[in-house]
Amino acid sequence: MTAYALSLAGESVLLLPQKALYWPRRKTLLVADIHFGKASAFRAQGVPVPRGTTSANLAALDELLALHPVERIVFLGDFLHARAAHAPATLAAMLAWRGRHRKLALTLVRGNHDRHAGDPSALLGIEMVDEPWQLGPFSLCHHPDLAAPGYVLAGHVHPVFRLAAGRDALRLPCFLVGAARAVLPSFGAFTGGFAVAPAAGERLFLVAGEAVLALPGRG
């Protein structure tokens, strides 16, 4: 796996191919839009979608914890997708994961889906905060366009970039990075994406398999 090292607000960070951001100095992992229980919410409405997205999300977190020394995970909103995400099976899986990581600090910056779904179970031991939440030079948010005093790290958009070559095209998750904010890709399985184009002064960093690559000639 090849991360992309970057300086944001005077801090060295890593854009990870697992669609998260790692802040080494604070041993902090930032994850946007994990959307636990989204598949359960669809099934509750009679839509036949695959099972296993909660397990996939937790396994992805475990992979990152094995690769990097992490003391805190900050979820940048949309931890739960809907009220159906409080299903017993979903909660049981999350509690089992939490039991393996008792010393890990967890913080959730509430997003729009969290307001509808309600806070996760207190048994998970997650610190609940509203946006913007200040940590060092960063304003940690869910919505990227929120007025905030620091450099904004946010989610919400689920950014992807359409990479075309002749008749072939790919939609790749990406980090959208500008002078005052960075938008992380959606971390969760089964979350989709919204095609973005960089504005003046913005850069795209594509998640291409096991590497994060800077898109040249843009922004």
Score class of each variant (00 low, 15 high):
204 L>N: 08
154 A>K: 03
97 W>G: 04
106 L>P: 14
57 N>A: 08
58 L>Y: 02
108 L>Q: 03
118 G>Q: 04
88 P>D: 13
127 E>P: 01
135 L>Q: 07
24 P>R: 11
10 G>R: 01
40 S>D: 06
146 L>I: 12
202 E>R: 02
137 P>R: 11
194 F>P: 00
174 C>K: 12
17 P>Y: 08
201 G>Q: 06
105 A>S: 11
216 P>D: 08
72 R>H: 04
212 V>H: 05
52 G>M: 08
160 V>K: 05
60 A>P: 05
182 A>R: 01
218 R>D: 00
101 H>K: 00
192 G>Q: 10
2 T>H: 15
209 G>C: 09
11 E>A: 14
144 P>T: 12
211 A>G: 11
77 G>L: 01
8 L>Q: 00
17 P>T: 07
202 E>Y: 10
43 R>L: 09
110 R>A: 05
72 R>C: 06
166 G>A: 09
30 L>Y: 01
192 G>D: 10
148 A>D: 04
184 L>T: 06
104 L>C: 15
201 G>H: 01
42 F>G: 01
89 A>C: 13
63 E>M: 15
51 R>D: 06
196 V>Q: 04
5 A>Q: 12
202 E>D: 13
157 V>G: 03
174 C>P: 07
129 V>K: 11
34 I>Q: 06
45 Q>L: 10
105 A>G: 05
200 A>R: 02
94 M>D: 00
13 V>F: 02
138 F>C: 08
123 L>V: 10
18 Q>I: 03
69 P>I: 09
144 P>S: 11
59 A>C: 07
91 L>I: 07
123 L>H: 14
121 S>K: 13
210 E>V: 14
3 A>T: 09
17 P>C: 08
194 F>E: 10
58 L>F: 09
119 D>R: 02
41 A>S: 15
74 V>H: 03
55 S>P: 07
87 A>H: 14
72 R>G: 06
196 V>P: 05
95 L>Q: 13
177 V>W: 04
69 P>C: 04
60 A>N: 11
166 G>Q: 08
194 F>Y: 12
152 V>N: 00
61 L>E: 01
34 I>D: 01
115 R>C: 14
3 A>I: 14
14 L>W: 03
155 G>K: 09
120 P>I: 02
96 A>C: 14
132 P>A: 08
15 L>E: 10
64 L>Q: 07
196 V>T: 03
50 P>Y: 05
172 L>R: 15
62 D>G: 15
203 R>V: 10
216 P>L: 06
127 E>T: 13
98 R>W: 12
45 Q>T: 09
42 F>P: 05
1 M>D: 13
21 L>I: 03
104 L>W: 15
7 S>C: 06
107 T>M: 03
188 G>K: 07
107 T>G: 07
122 A>P: 14
107 T>Q: 00
138 F>W: 08
55 S>E: 14
41 A>I: 09
161 F>D: 01
170 L>M: 02
157 V>K: 08
43 R>G: 09
64 L>A: 02
137 P>Y: 05
87 A>E: 10
192 G>P: 03
147 A>W: 13
187 F>G: 02
54 T>A: 11
213 L>N: 12
209 G>W: 08
170 L>F: 05
10 G>D: 00
57 N>P: 02
191 T>G: 11
35 H>N: 12
132 P>C: 01
